[in-house]
Design a protein around this nucleic acid. Sequence first.
DNA 1: GCAAGGTC
Length: 607
Amino acid sequence: MKVIIAEKPSVARDIAKVFGATTKREGYIEGKGYTFTWAFGHLLQLAPPQEYGFYGWNVQNLPMLPSKFKLSVRKTKTKDGVVDDPAARKQLDVIRTLFDEATEIIVATDAGREGELIFRYIYYHLKCKKPFKRLWISSQTDAAIKDGFRNLKPGTDYDTLFYSAHCRSQSDWLVGMNATQALSLASGNRAVLSLGRVQTPTLAMICARYLENKNFVPEIYYQVAIQPDKDGITFRAICDRRFKTKEEAEVVLSKVEDVASGFPDGGLILRVEAKPRKEPPPLLHDLSSLQQEGNKKKGFTADQTLALLQNLYESKLVTYPRTGSRYIGDDVFATVPDLISKFEDHKDFGKQAQLLKGAKLSKKSVNAKKVTDHHAILPTGEKPNYLTPDQQAIYDMVAGRMLEAFHQDCIKEITRIVVQSGEKFNASGTVISTPGWRAVFNDADEDKKDEENVSLPKVVKDERLPIRQKAVLEKQTKPKPLYNEASLLKALETAGKDIDDEELREAMKESGLGTPATRAAIIETLIKRAYISREKKNLVPTTTGLSVYEVVKSQRIAQAELTGSWEKRLEEIRGGASVTAFREEINAYTREITGELLKAGIPLKTS
DNA sequence: GCAAGGTC
């Protein structure tokens, strides 16, 4: 009997369906001589410190450097304390029984580093010795699954991928557990002061932005504006020059030949540019972009959006939510016209769905090479029964974005006018001539809502217009805004883009800080530790958060670069480089950071 | 009591 093991039940079901296996058992499906079972993500984790003899939180234990890591069943918190997760334990028993009976194992966990780790931890924990092959696919359509089974790879092809995954896992444990205990102990041990490769740079970003914002000294500057009049329609034009004093601005103002100063036609049109600009549709959503939209449009936290989305996924209404890809492959694209037709009677964008019927669809979101472990989020086409208003809102964001993504370009008419009256003054305006994809939600372009979405009257070069008004404008430079969940998620995604070292920047390019599946949890962790709090929509540090930041801000653990340097080494390990060398470096760094924190944490006592 | 990673 062959056993196929997937990362999660939904994938096992999809594969079983292709084989025509239908008999549902407790924890697996069987039929046609196969069994199809699954994990629930990581069932096993690196064992906690006490399993290596490091009892309690004690300076004498530090740094904790196990020579060989152990695995233990994933834990869950109950009122009686931390216990083995019963669901994980039960599923492991199912897998153990199936593996015992198996002649061959086919590994169908997600095609990536963590997917490999999820399987290997189970396999080694169960001390299984059966041969295994690897299914490597990135979409769960029938065609992709069939093709994948025709091209099963030898399990050993992925040994180095497992080594890199295992190194990632151990390194996070070593640095995180040791740094956390060191800082907590050094600060008097009154509370858990956690540190980690992802959470600490995230905290640092929030703190740095907060301090920058708080300490910002606005500068006042002056500009000059005029209002030319074309056949009774006035519009505003501004002189680009910025002045430090009002007096300097008034010099320019005095040169303006406005009507009140006795010039009936004091504005000369020097230049008129009117050109259409195509604005292509946005990409389909991945988890992060949807969390950002949920935060902007509805004020949901990243965690809330993920929970709502998980809910829709379990009701089979949307595809897999924790994806980091905004693309689909050609196989999925082939199903899109049918999917779109399912929305023709939707109350808000049914009309747009009808419009797309038979139309040529944009292929901007179609790129198999950019589909990683999972493709972008789509509705499945199943009809929702009852949805809560919040679920409906998220569902509509998914469905509406699908319509947008395959829609036509939005065509805007952009006009720029330069008026001479003493100085040169500029006016610009944007008018949507063909809405295309923007017709789906009919939202204003929020980035440029205030200034650009105005229409300008038709004027021609060398024309002279009266200037009805002129004024000096007093303005202030503005600080960068505090982070909110949307802007923080965006910043985590793009973290590392401005690293000087080209190799590190390259290593982080595809990942950023954390992963789509964990970013919401990272924000919640910082809140649970009382490092940050939500104030209206903003994320601001607490005094505890700021004190921790002060202690670690110049350490590597607070920099996104740490992830970059690890990613670079992990990629080399995947390519066959030595694991031992990297482990030694991590051990050395663990000793170093532990020592420094034990010294440096003291100031926290008094704060 | 602690990391980051995955998922019901």
